[in-house]
Amino acid sequence: MANYLPFEEPISLIEEEILKAKEIGANSGVSTSKMVKDLEKKLKTTTEDIFKNLTPWQRVQLSRHPDRPYTLDYINAITGGDFVELHGDRNVKDDKAMVGGFGTVDGQSIMFVGQQKGINTKMRQYRNFGMPNPEGYRKAMRLFRLAEKFNKPIVTFIDTPGAFPGLEAEERGQGEAIARNIYEMMNLKVPVICIIIGEGASGGALGIGVGDKVVMLENSWYSVISPENCSTILWRSWDYKEQAAEALKLTSTDMKALKIVDEVIKEPIGGAHRFKEEAFENVKKSILKNLTKLQKMDPDKRCEKRINKFCEMGVYKGK
């Protein structure tokens, strides 16, 4: 059973009608094919209308859509299942909110790492809602180093509401773990591509977000804080999340304009959750295109360029 967001309601109604029309056709023998065709046309235009003018808050909702593909969905689709997940940070434990391992795409092996969310209540808890602990970031770094040792490129998938703000997380140095990753990722001698596929919340996202190319899916968001928390702090109430989403300029279009991300991957009209295969294909194409370019560069030059890119970020006046 598909899930629908409030603004997707019109889509759900038409889809229901189509199903009914098909059912009548099958049961009564009366031809409903014209009716189905008309409805499908209507579905297409309605979807287009809705997705043409999405507000920032609607995009935030889409980024969290329960049917939206998660990190392992992308990895499995892109590698065609030729993927070996590797576990543990060799220190504390295996963080289920951060997954990673080697996979192959078009005959070359790639290290994939990303935050993982769960598909139902039980799995969401198991994955800690995609909120890694310090060991998650250290596991990611261990895998990055492994990739570097064998000269394999790295692709990260970012999808997190933030790093976990728990007691043990603080004890084990959440801040240090993220800081270390940001610092070390600058100097990884292999190509690094980071793709924000859903939520890109703050340091928790940036902890695996330093790359030669940082790419965002069209209906994902990336910012220093979630709109809800921003609303709570600045307006002292949760009710201003829509305004906060506007103010934070967190959409892919805004982030590209601010030169914080390098590229936006178009999603099929209707969203990645409705046309998953197409979304997987777009992501795969983007990865291969960027890898081809990055692999031609000298490793030291590539690091230098990566460092310089981040050094130039920020907008200020005067000198």
């Binding site: 940001i182 600058m186 981040f310």
Partner: peptide, 13 residues
Amino acid sequence: AGLSLMQMAKTSA
């Protein structure tokens, strides 16, 4: 917003 987040990356770079 996003620009301040990137200052974490900038200073580390």
